[in-house]
Amino acid sequence: MTTVTAPPRTSKQMVWVTTHRRTLGRYILPTVFILGLIGLQELLTQNGALPATYFPPASEIAAALIQELSAPALGSALSSTLSTWLMAILLSVGLGTIVGVLLGLIVPLEAILRPIIEFLRPVPSVALIPLVVLTIGTGSQSALFLAVFAAFWQVLVPAIIGVRAAHPVALDTARSYSFSLWQRIRWIQLPSMLPYLATAVRLATSTSLILIVTAEIIIQMPGIGYEITMSRSVGNPARMYAYIALSGAAGILLNGLVRRLENKLFATHGLGGTA
């Protein structure tokens, strides 16, 4: 039993140990930690260390969330937030890619527009809320505009870089075989920008969600954000926290969805082997 010292474990055992250590590190420990935090919050609020008016106990928040699940407000809030988000992602990724390809290919055009891009890009979308309310109004288009405005730049800049990342030898090959402009874009430049776009889409996913919820809170348009601020003003903090938790969950869900899509795309395009 004790004679085996080196090698201490067979490779099979090593794999077992490492995979189990990984499961422990990846799932069990974080779960235990989060449950511990929730328990601590419950304890602190129950014994009055934290004021219950601002911090309802976790159990109360959970009860509010469960109650909301059967209430009509949740479904419509979720559907308006998520449908605006979906539109925002489609628009910003579509526009960003098209404009990015154009600017990536036409260098002088990009040179002319660069100062404008560099000026508009860092403008926080939230700063445009008063303008948007004045011009577009308080409908869901306003949230859509703000989200697209914020996410567009996050797609545009990587798209420009991605188009230009096509390797010179690949472009020479295209030229020597007399590919048309469209064939060159379709077969060489779009695929070479995919990795850049993938990152951009993930950034745009969270950015647009943030902007939409912000717009819902500030402009008070239907959605998760509106339910958050409404709950606060009617003095129901438990419900407010329930919706905050929900918006967090929506973020995780959407991010996971986009990541899955990305992996699928990369697997079918075999981009994993290009590095």
Partner: peptide, 10 residues
């Protein structure tokens, strides 16, 4: 440079 001249995604 054959590696660059072929399209890796095809």
């Amino acid at each position: 440079d054959y590696a660059r001249s072929l399209m890796p995604w095809m």
